[in-house]
């Protein structure tokens, strides 16, 4: 019984990962794609790995380490990528409301 619960949790997790991939295709610009693609998938992979850990309790330690690893590296890589994209001058989509960073950037660039 507990095994079926674990399997269902991992199924729900893989559905979240699928939704993230759908977002990567559907969203209009880099930043929104990042919101969906690398972050909606965080909860997805957490659920998937923990679900497998419930099915196979002997592997739980290593799977938890993988989860911690994903939680630590995921925001760092998406932050680095978003920052690089903004530095490289990739525009936000026309749907965007405003861009405070661009407003502030010219004067802050002068002080190095």
């Amino acid at each position: 019984m507990i095994q079926i619960i674990g399997a269902v949790i991992s199924l729900v997790g893989s559905m979240f990962i699928f939704l993230g991939a759908l977002g990567v295709v559907r969203m209009p610009d880099v930043y929104n794609r990042m919101q969906a693609g690398t972050k909606a998938t965080t909860l997805g992979s957490m659920l998937t790995l923990i679900g497998i850990g419930i099915v196979l309790p002997g592997w739980l330690g290593k799977l938890l380490l993988l989860v911690v690893f994903i939680i630590i590296t995921n925001p760092i890589s998406s932050h680095a990528l978003a920052r690089a994209a903004h530095h490289a001058g990739i525009k936000l989509t026309e749907k965007s409301v405003r861009d405070n960073l661009k407003e502030d950037y010219p004067k802050e660039d002068d002080n190095g």
Binding site: I17, V24, G37, T38, T48, I70, A85, I90
Partner: peptide, 18 residues
């Protein structure tokens, strides 16, 4: 753009781990 491709690669990797 290149950044779009990297976002896609990142999403593929996270799915790939699972």
């Amino acid at each position: 753009t290149c950044a779009d491709r990297m976002v896609a690669l990142d999403a593929m990797t996270i799915a790939g781990i699972s």
